[in-house]
Design a protein around this nucleic acid. Sequence first.
DNA 1: CCAAGGCATGTAACCGGTTACATATCATCG
DNA 2: CGATGATATGTAACCGGTTACATGCCTTGG
Lengths: 349, 349
Amino acid sequence: MSRFKSEKSASGARSIGIRDIARSAGVSTATVSRFLNKPESVGADLRDKISRVIDETGYIPHASARALSSRRTRTIGAIVPTVDNAMFAQGLQALQSYLATKDYLLLLATNEYDIDVELQQARNLVARGIDALILRGDERHPILRRLLETNGIPFVNVGLCEPAKPYPSVGVDNYEAGRVLARYITDLGHRRVAVVAAHQRNNDRAQARLRGIIEVLEQQACAPGPGWQLQVDYNLADAGDAARILLQGESRPTAIICGNDVIAYGVMLAAIRMGCDVPRDLSVVGFDDLDWSRHLLPSLTTIHMPTNEIWVRAGRYLVDLLAGQAPIKHQQVDFSLVLRESTAPPPKT
Amino acid sequence: MSRFKSEKSASGARSIGIRDIARSAGVSTATVSRFLNKPESVGADLRDKISRVIDETGYIPHASARALSSRRTRTIGAIVPTVDNAMFAQGLQALQSYLATKDYLLLLATNEYDIDVELQQARNLVARGIDALILRGDERHPILRRLLETNGIPFVNVGLCEPAKPYPSVGVDNYEAGRVLARYITDLGHRRVAVVAAHQRNNDRAQARLRGIIEVLEQQACAPGPGWQLQVDYNLADAGDAARILLQGESRPTAIICGNDVIAYGVMLAAIRMGCDVPRDLSVVGFDDLDWSRHLLPSLTTIHMPTNEIWVRAGRYLVDLLAGQAPIKHQQVDFSLVLRESTAPPPKT
DNA sequence: CCAAGGCATGTAACCGGTTACATATCATCG
DNA sequence: CGATGATATGTAACCGGTTACATGCCTTGG
């Protein structure tokens, strides 16, 4: 029956393959394959002929077959907490554009801030045959490391930079960023400072930032008590709740340092609704410098993170590595303090 | 030399395959394959044995090989303008979670609002072997239709619902939504109404919304002249520019209808900076009801879009279709008008 | 008690590319 | 002029699964 194999289920015009192209062009499959992967290794006349046949037929090479035999998928995976978040979205967009220029595809997965989910997603990506993986931060399931190792999948951590660690990383020094920001607040004269951080669990960037902030505040002898150190989820509503808690009491902070711009904005909106004048009564600062932070009212003083650059560099690191080069293993990217309208010296009283 | 094949490049412990599992479990590869794909078709004792071997070895089936021989990748593609946009990000996140429960993977590509890029990306996805495709809107490159047809790839349009068209779609009736929103504004008493829409090129949703808006305004004999109909990109800065143009003249609008929430927010921020009191001097409305629209100051009157539901339904449509069922082809989802603080009757004067 | 049919399992061809190796051609050099 | 090597192309084994078909066993009904 094998002579009927191409007549599957009525509609089944079997899609054309490399053998069809080879036959039409009067060459071998090997030559077509070489044309596809390294055109300059094929003679000019054959090159033209093959090219013409491919254009005419609209032939598209079968990526799975390619991946199977070459053991490379030209696919890079990335696992982030969620794409529903301006910062990741922006960086991923930039990464994707970059990878497209290198003829790589980005395969995206989310871990919902859960290292078990992350492991599961990583398994998924590995099964899918990614050539390399980009991970957010540095805290992850121990089995994940083994998984990547035994499958020989290179990876890079983004969002932090720890030259002491054996794993490659691209990012800013979050600890130092925390210090700079806190220092700016204390230099303005604030001594009653509260901190609304992102949840610390499994989030080393948030931890490093907080560590830097607290350290500076301690040096200035104004470390916030436990009631003035809150942790919230990444959204406006929760941040607003935190602000209401901080501002309802008798003794209020004159400045609130927030773990990122979204939290800062949530805090600011709630404070204004409570009748606070930002920055006259209360200064608010964040991290990340999201696109809209400079448009807000008041615009937000924050730490600018070169998000796009970080993600693109991470992508480039892996692409170079896969191309057999030896890129720089730890790339520290500069952040900067952006002064805007949401900060001022504390009120006199 | 073939007996050396497993010793590639020193580190090369060839990863284990289905034949290894079969040998260890004392069964044939076919049985292992059946265990993987339809466990209930394998006897209980063998099932246990195979399961144990797989757990011990950490075996992960090779997706490319699987795809090659089964001609199904369990991958669904989606092409959106950009992920750097709260609305898409949210919907995609929901879609991805849904597909994960069905053991499908989401392959994401962006078209940067360009139908040629979209075609290119679609080629990419097809080469990658997607089983189905989700597309945004309905305006696309004619070749793309052919491409999908000849490759037998089912697809669905999201964000609109046009039962008249032959292609499946899931979304709201944007034209009607535009009418409802405009109607609300005119019912409030506004007669000097400006419109700041998203760019119309290759964006049928934006076109439908605008059509609905203009139609209602014409009925009320207050259709905006060309100077009061602006088109901007999807970002706060451009929207702010538009607001400054509209509000600088002698004769100002008392309400501005915006193509979406981001534009509305950009307009609102710029207006407030110019000393306008929203909503007393100026009413502003948008579309989409992004997460933060209810937190803004003032909070935004807008059309609520069930984004998550739309994307998940689109995913379910394709999953069901691929499973051989016959899901509903055109699914209209309800929108709703959400009244908040950014609207009021026009000032007396 | 035997034929028929259902079920679990094994054998091996096949999916559509890549690539190691063989072969052919031609320029170069002692 | 023959040996040498570089370059272009062809042949066919292989990547790691899936699945059509074959096989063998067990149940069931006449």
